[in-house]
């Protein structure tokens, strides 16, 4: 996630002074409490992962996780941490809500602006700076029969990169004070968008993914599948422990790219699909 964007949005959340008072111990059962409109948390975590986009690695990191909705329906979400599966940083407007369903107008991103990297024969990296793919879309979220559903749809991504759709289903359990969940997500990724990041075009007047020696590649559309298992445990009113295991099935349209094929062969313990493990503690304000 773009750290500058995270900091900016987190700053906005802080500066508006609208961070909710979410953490309170019960002085008495009858104490009235105002309804929470948001939260913000900062955390540190350890991760280990393997996939097609980078060398197998492990390390430490930090994150911000927060969300706030104003009374007029405008909201901002800065999801972060190992157990965030809500997606990317978003701003939007709540169009409709009842006890079970939410409909939001959403501005977010379908693909981050991370550089496309190509490992050359001598091991050095050739990088192509890539802009994020943003969208304006509609999000439906709801709970039905104990399952949580989310659908995001947009007919047009930024820079004419096609349409985008993301659907997700998740199930939650509470075992003692442990919260356990599993989530499955399918994303439709347009050929135009994948081509921007993973295509190879060696025409003379092209500066996008022009890599001599690689065959031309025009990516088709694809479906990505991801599975997420996670647990959260409240250590105190302020501290949370999270653990997560994620699996990402990379679409063939990405894996078949000569860039990715070459990186898989030359990179350090890369794999076609991605697997990640994360552990974190976070402080909720």
């Amino acid at each position: 996630m773009n750290k500058v964007m995270i900091r900016t949005l987190a700053g906005c959340l802080s500066l508006t002074g609208l961070i909710s008072q979410t953490l309170q111990a019960a002085e008495s059962p009858q104490d009235p409490h105002t309804e929470s409109k948001g939260f913000i948390a900062v955390g540190v975590g350890a991760f280990a992962g393997q996939g097609p986009f980078g060398d197998a690695s492990a390390g430490l990191g930090y994150f911000i996780n927060g969300a706030y909705e104003w009374d007029n329906g405008l909201f901002v979400e800065v999801p972060g941490g190992p157990n965030n599966i809500l997606g990317s940083t978003s701003v939007g407007y709540n169009l409709y809500r009842n006890a079970h369903w939410d409909v939001d107008f959403l501005a977010s991103s379908a693909h981050s602006g991370a550089d496309t990297k190509y490992i050359q024969q001598d091991g050095s990296e050739l990088r192509f700076t890539k802009n994020p793919t943003n969208y304006l879309g509609v999000r439906f979220r709801g709970i039905w029969s104990g399952l949580r559903f989310q659908l995001i749809a947009t007919p047009k991504l930024s820079d004419d990169r096609g349409a985008y759709m993301s659907s997700q289903i998740s199930k939650h359990w509470t075992i003692k004070n442990w919260h356990v969940f599993s989530a499955y997500r399918v994303n439709y990724l347009s050929g135009d968008m994948l081509n921007y990041y993973y295509g190879v075009n060696n025409t003379e007047n092209n500066s996008n993914n022009r890599i001599s020696g690689l065959p031309e590649y025009i990516a088709s559309s694809g479906l990505s599948h991801s599975l997420h298992l996670g647990v959260t445990y409240p250590l105190t009113e302020h501290w949370l422990f999270d653990a997560s295991l994620r699996y990402y099935h990379t679409p063939s349209a990405i894996v078949d790219s000569p860039i990715i094929q070459s990186n898989l062969a030359r990179g350090d313990n890369r794999s076609r699909n991605a697997l990640g493990l994360g552990l974190s503690v976070s402080y909720v304000f």
């Binding site: 909710s20 909201f75 939410d102 969940f181 009113e237």
Partner: peptide, 15 residues
């Protein structure tokens, strides 16, 4: 940790 809310941004915090 989290107050009651009708707001899914809070309710769905832990997904």
């Amino acid at each position: 940790v989290y107050n009651k809310s009708k707001n899914t941004r809070v309710r769905w915090r832990m997904f």
